[in-house]
Design a protein around this nucleic acid. Structure first.
Length: 958
RNA sequence: GCGGGGGUAGCCAAGCCGGCCAAAGGCGCGGGACUUAAGAUCCCGUAUCGAAGGAUUUCAGGGGUUCGAAUCCCCUCCCCCGCACCA
């Protein structure tokens, strides 16, 4: 049967909204629960993988609602940055690929006009996220509270937050090196190339400038590997470049013209004072820093004047370029004579081995050259060679004995130490440069410029780190691994630049208008703002009312109501209402986010809370969810994974997708998106729909019997399993119960002839409720079909009751007997005429009863049990058999619990199995008779009856 | 290298705070029922051996702790992720 899930979804979503089920209003009489998912950045359309975490949030919130909590589930979006600017630029420029992408996802022609404006982009995607994703998936979020980081009221909140950080002394200013255009100031260098026309992939690199003394001047080389100075054997100068002499702090430096310009942006008082042709320097000897040895200057054309300083110190042991160039020089007599060098001098230059690393010999550079089969300077493979040697050296290398006091250190450590030592000695300085050419939109080259007054949030603050770390111990953080590691992450966090200039959307920095607060920093304390956004969205407060006093009062209880009311222009009543809301909903119970947040968002979320809010407002839980990935880490377009979310919702049904997310794996593993798997979940729901509908439609009724006790007991057991699972937010375990075990139980009930209306009604009520958190639409549909009152989304899950271990045990016994019989038939290959089941002789039950009571008193052991049995006159008649059985029983019982064993002795097996004779005969297609081993004149040709024990009837097949 | 996470039956994936684990559940596969409309539904089976419900060998590999280990400890191998402006 094909169900029209789309229609069903729409119908119920509208009803929920009509009934206001999603609205969260303060209700002091009810416990509250507040949960968010980390809001998404407005970067375009989302794909099916993103819905995973969002779905968890809705399911958990629905469950909490069903267990009596007043739930606040707010949503928002993050639009800070230049994403929207760049998207709108693409539309304005008629970027074909991008517009195609928009249209594929359902964007209409008219909307394109709106998208030409950055804020239009934000507005557009805000709508897409809310309407096409979250509402479409049936989320019961309080839409009234929706906020976006670019809303003016949100900005007020962020400005307040920064004022509080400053009060705490957590905002610090220090120099920072950032890409900037001489005309336009700081620019954003990123792949979207909003500010720039070239070089979006460039990154900023820190070079160490090494000063090589030559007379009263310094040749200045730039290196990425200051730890290799002990391997310096010569120095490279490009003979074709006209170098500049610059004066700096009274010294004279020689660098390339390009470097001279860049240095002026980063160093004070740099002036060009002259020039010197590169070839003039060939043959010089200069004194290398750190090692204080004189090394010769050789010619090399690979010295690019645009990279670093255009001068290079040569460490052939670990730099492939150096190795190959040195080889080349040695074999080039023409060059030697041209520059007036001597073969002797050149031959005296030999590489020095300085770093030992696994997989390499004394000279890693040479090994790599050989491995990649590089034979001469200029080979493009040298780029890879360099990268690989650097990377391996950095991570795996250790300094050799040739490295003075740094011998034995890991490269990672030595690098910083050696760099610092040279800086302290005045032999080195730092310098920043971009990895590739970057050109501003205005056409000017972009270089790294020192910004003296950059603001940082000092996450390195020890007190804050310690306090946050301490608080994390009291939090419910999932998965447990993250609970453990979060301390390490907090510790590792240092200062973070929190504002930037240039073409960005975001909130102005309250202490200096030229700055805009950057993207991570304006998204740390924001869950709190959802408790206030309601009032701003409804127009009851305006951004201009939202002053520092306002937030101080409603959040921190600071200030006098009357004076705050006066200064903010908000009525006292309203201020009180907001203040109470804030304190009712906060702290946040759970912040759920994808694993990418573990090292970025969660730590700053925690630290900002700790820094600004009092103890009783600290967050209580974090859940990290892993990803839905595509094959080869990309959701494949051809398989439809990248199809628009609304399309997937239509194809599979929202509930099937929700169930897929919830059940396909635990939250803490990556899952590969696979449509076929989603389809199996859809089929599972079809099956459940059909089963429930059949039950509802069925006219038949029957009096209650044992099987009814069983079903009700099972379902109540399931309620408690669900509660236990959800304590740990284990949606997967919960789903296994609700969508698999409960269906199986219903089937078994049917199979066993159960038909009682009342039982079925109660079972259905529990079952449908159990499905509500994950598949709310079909649950709602079935709830209404079953004629239950109200909506299941508003129903309360009952506490478990009527659990009957005996009833559950009894059915297990029936199933065990059936499977035993099947097995015997298979192995023995018998075509049976009849099957006789002999239940245990009663004396064995008596032994077990004795054992049980002894166990309950905590006095069970083999000799005591045997003794006690022998005290019974009837039992003594069976002498040996009794003592053997007592031994077995005692051993077995001692390994278990009284509760587990009690049903075995309490169940009247003979009566139960007799009542199943007909059922078993039908199921097995053979006449089944049940006898008690105690019966006189027992028909027992193979003497099977005597092996029967409680819980294990003997089986005779003939 | 440092830090983190893993390796479970054909596949995915539970379990992993020691026994009730030959190991949930799903998928796939085999057989049967229905019956021939179905990406349908329902039963049974799916490590190996077994003419009686059992036995044996399994949870990357090796060793150990224990009456008892997929679960705890040690070693080895392999896979994945992050590494602080970082090559």
């Amino acid at each position: 049967m094909a169900y029209d899930y789309t229609a069903m979804e729409k119908k119920w979503q509208e009803k929920w909204i009509d009934e206001g089920l999603n609205l969260a209003n303060r209700d002091e009489k009810k416990p509250k629960f507040m949960m968010i998912f980390a809001y998404p950045g407005v970067t375009g359309y989302l794909h099916v993988g993103h819905l995973r975490g969002y779905t968890y949030t809705d399911a958990i919130c629905r469950y909490k609602r069903m267990t009596g909590f007043n739930v606040l589930f707010p949503v928002g979006t993050h639009a800070t940055g230049n994403g929207a600017i760049s998207l709108s630029a693409k539309v304005r420029n008629n970027n074909e690929e991008f517009i195609d992408y928009l249209e594929r996802n359902g964007c209409t022609e008219e909307k394109l006009e709106q998208l030409k404006d950055p804020m239009g982009v934000v507005k557009f995607f805000n709508e897409v996220y809310v309407e096409d994703y979250w509402k479409r998936f049936g989320f019961l979020a309080d839409w009234r509270r929706f906020t976006c980081t670019l809303f003016p009221d949100y900005g007020k909140f962020i400005q307040w937050q920064f004022r509080k950080l400053k009060e705490q002394g957590l905002l610090i200013q220090k120099p920072y090196y950032a890409p900037a255009c001489p005309n336009c100031g700081p620019v954003a260098v990123d792949a979207s190339e909003t500010d720039i026309s070239k070089g979006g992939n460039a990154e900023t690199q820190e070079y160490t400038l090494l000063k090589f003394k030559h007379g009263s001047e310094f040749l200045v080389a730039a290196t990425l590997r200051p730890e290799t100075v002990y391997g310096q054997v010569c120095f490279w100068v490009n003979p074709e470049v006209e170098y500049k002499k610059i004066s700096k702090n009274g010294e004279t430096w020689i660098v390339s013209p390009q470097a001279a310009e860049k240095l002026q942006l980063q160093k004070d008082g740099v002036e060009v004072v002259g020039t010197i042709p590169g070839k003039e320097m060939i043959g010089w000897k200069c004194e290398a820093p750190m090692i204080h040895r004189e090394i010769p200057v050789f010619p090399a054309t690979f010295c690019d004047p645009t990279v670093g300083t255009g001068l290079v110190t040569s460490v052939p042991s670990d730099a492939p370029d150096d190795w190959i160039s040195l080889e080349a020089v040695k074999k080039d007599p023409k060059m030697i004579s041209e520059y007036g060098l001597s073969q002797e001098l050149i031959d005296s230059v030999v590489p020095i081995s300085i770093i030992t690393m696994k997989g390499y010999g004394d000279f890693p550079a040479k090994d790599m050259i050989d491995r990649l089969n590089i034979t001469q300077p200029g080979d493009p493979k040298l780029v890879d060679a360099k990268k690989q040697v650097y990377k391996d050296g950095y991570h795996m290398g250790k300094m050799k004995d040739t490295c003075g006091e740094f011998a034995g250190m890991r490269v990672e450590e030595a690098k910083d130490k050696m760099k610092q030592a040279m800086i302290d000695a005045g032999e080195a300085e730092l310098f920043y440069d971009l990895t590739e050419e970057v050109v501003c939109r205005c056409g000017q080259p972009v270089h790294i410029r020192r910004i003296d007054d950059q603001w940082f949030i000092n996450y390195g603050d020890q007190k804050l780190t310690d306090e946050t770390s301490e608080h994390c111990k009291d939090m419910d953080i999932n998965p447990p691994e993250y609970y453990e590691n979060v301390h390490g992450v907090l510790n590792w966090f240092r200062e973070r630049a929190c504002v930037r200039q240039g073409n960005w959307l975001g909130t102005r920095f309250p202490f200096d208008d030229k700055w805009i607060i950057e993207a991570i920093s304006d998204s740390t304390l924001y869950p709190l703002y959802y408790t206030i956004s309601l009032y701003a969205n409804e127009g009851r407060i305006k951004p201009e009312n939202m002053t520092e006093e306002f937030f101080d009062y409603v959040v921190l209880d600071k200030g006098e109501l009357a004076s705050v009311s006066k200064s903010t222009g908000i009525s006292e009543d309203l201020l009180e209402e907001i203040r109470k809301d804030v304190h009712y909903w906060y702290p946040l119970d759970i912040n759920l986010g994808g694993k990418e947040h573990m090292t970025v968002h969660f730590p700053v979320f925690l630290m900002n809370h700790r820094a600004i809010l009092p103890d009783d407002m600290q967050p209580k839980g974090i859940i990290v969810n892993w990803y839905i990935t595509g094959k080869k880490n990309k959701i494949s377009k051809s398989k439809g994974g990248a199809q628009p979310i609304p399309g997937a919702a239509k194809k599979f049904g929202v509930d099937a997708m929700r169930l897929y997310y919830a059940h396909v794996a635990s939250m803490f593993v990556d899952v590969e998106w696979d449509e076929d798997i989603v389809m199996t979940y859809r089929q599972r729901l079809d099956k459940i729909m059909g089963t429930v509908e059949d039950l509802i439609a069925s006219e038949s009724d029957a009096p209650k019997s044992d099987i009814d006790d069983w079903l009700l007991s099972r379902f109540n057991t399931h309620i408690s399993e669900i509660r236990t699972a959800m304590e740990k937010y284990d949606l997967r375990a919960m789903a296994t119960v609700a969508y698999y075990e409960m269906l199986n139980d219903i089937r078994w009930y049917n199979r066993r002839g159960g038909k009682n209306r009342e039982t079925l009604n109660e079972a259905l009520r529990i079952w449908i409720m159990s499905m509500m958190p994950i598949t709310p639409h079909i649950a709602e549909e079935l709830w209404s079909k079953a004629g239950f009152e109200g909506m299941v989304s508003a129903a309360l899950l009952p506490e478990p009751r009527q659990i009957s271990a005996a009833a559950e045990y009894g059915e297990d016994l029936v199933r065990d007997v059936m499977s035993d019989i099947a097995q015997i038939r298979k192995v023995a290959a018998i075509e049976p005429e009849q099957i006789i089941l002999y239940t245990s002789p009663s004396w064995k039950v008596d032994v077990m009863k004795l054992a049980l009571s002894m166990m309950e008193e905590g006095k069970l052991d083999i000799p005591s049990l045997t003794k006690k049995c022998m005290a019974d006159e009837n039992m003594r008649k069976n002498g040996k058999a009794v003592s053997e059985f007592a031994k077995k029983t005692a051993t077995e019982f001692m390994r278990s619990t009284a509760d587990a064993k009690r049903p075995i002795v309490e169940l009247d097996e003979t009566a139960l199995l007799r009542s199943c004779e007909e059922f078993l005969s039908d199921e097995l297609g053979t006449k089944v008779r049940v006898c008690s081993a105690d019966e006189p004149d027992l028909y027992d040709p193979q003497k099977k009856a005597k092996v029967a024990v409680p819980g294990r009837p003997a089986i005779f097949i003939e």
